[in-house]
Nucleic acid binder design. Structure first.
Lengths: 212, 212
DNA sequence: CGAGTCCTTGAAATGGATCAAACGCTGTGG
DNA sequence: CCACAGCGTTTGATCCATTTCAAGGACTCG
């Protein structure tokens, strides 16, 4: 997907060094501080990027899904700033940065794609700050559910949530508080469980509930 | 500074459309949603980038100083995502994006500079999440002071702080809480006021205080 | 010097963290 | 098919941190 702008047959010559890889749930894709120079493109599944404080507390700074590029800092020759961990079984392709640079020299259209991935990462980070790290916890949880909803099925959307501990690490709160708010939402009928960590969400009720 | 990699005389032809501008304290550099296509490069002074929630509450998502480029989203043809406001009298130069693109076509070295600005913005956003939006408020304030310290003067550094309301908007807390913690730090002798909003900070004491 | 802005402090009420214990679900092996 | 281990969730109770409202005081800048 990173190569959306490029000619398909032309690519095959260049893409030989690219590996398709599979990561199981919980597998570490890369670790903070690693100096290896790969950018990863997600083909399926979801990953979290986490930072650890000195006290060992973990904070999730980004969530990545299909089409996202992760480990972009390698492009500017920086060690990875976070640890990337698969939340589900994932298909990713691992692209050496020097290959990317070679492609970029011959076909500058690539850098357009790279800029847009970069912009997406920044936009997500800003969302994290303004929506997941601001205001009372209940509002944060509600905004998080919004974020996780598979768009386009309204008014009753299907949401695949994460385990409480991960949601807490996204919101900068404790797992107990997340659990309590989830209970609340289930009791009022905003969320209805249909499978493990999967719910049907009444979007209208969710929105109106935020403004109480 | 954006043109650090480029030849000086070569530039003069291209840079004619660039305006040098001055913004007074509180002046709006651009507003969220504006579609104008300029990138601004800071020559002196500091600016805040703020996002407003529906309730009108403001959250500062970034702070920019000398050498920073702001309004980068214009490069990928997006409207500005935040409102940029001068915190002090500022000198900035305003560069039309189409000029940048022209320069970039002829001298691809420019895009290296742009990527690195983009990376800096993302790094700051991540710092905001992990350091200014995580953990108890006292720790956040301490990390914020660290961030604002003019590096290189140790062990007693000079810090130019912001008004309490702005610091609160950076930390996602209330101005009263910020004020209380500041009082605490002054009482213990970690901070010593030498001018309006300017303090001498005993860095060692500050650090050891964080771990209580 | 005065107007306005910003800071400080108090007291009450709330919200959230933490510790601890019980519960429920899921997948495994007998 | 059932029982059990392990993980994750739920819930309660207590304590602490933070918000909020309100008022007084200090500082800054014209």
């Amino acid at each position: 997907m990173l190569f959306a702008d490029l000619d398909a047959t032309y690519l095959d010559n260049l893409l030989a060094p690219i590996d398709n890889m599979v990561f199981e749930t919980g597998a570490v894709i890369y670790s903070e501080g690693d100096g290896h120079s790969y950018i990863y493109s997600v083909r399926s599944g979801r990953a979290k990027q986490v930072g650890y404080s000195k006290s060992g507390q973990e904070r999730i700074v980004r969530l990545n899904g299909v089409g996202d590029a992760i480990g972009l800092e390698a492009w500017v020759d920086k060690p990875y700033q976070h640890t990337a961990i698969a939340l589900q079984k994932m298909d990713v392709c691992r692209i050496p940065v020097n290959v990317l640079k070679r492609i970029n020299n011959e076909v500058p259209l690539l850098s357009r794609q790279l800029f847009s991935r970069w912009e997406a990462a920044l936009e997500q980070a800003d969302f994290w700050i303004t929506s997941l790290s601001t205001g009372p916890t209940r509002k944060r949880v509600i905004r998080l559910i919004h974020f996780l909803v598979d768009r386009d099925n309204v008014p009753n959307a299907i949401v695949r949530l994460l385990k409480a501990e991960d949601m807490a690490a996204m919101l900068g709160t404790s797992k107990e508080t997340v659990s309590r708010i989830m209970s609340e939402l289930k009791n009022i009928g905003v969320l209805r469980r249909i499978a493990p960590r999967t719910y049907i969400c009444d979007m209208a009720a969710l929105d109106s509930y935020e403004y109480q």
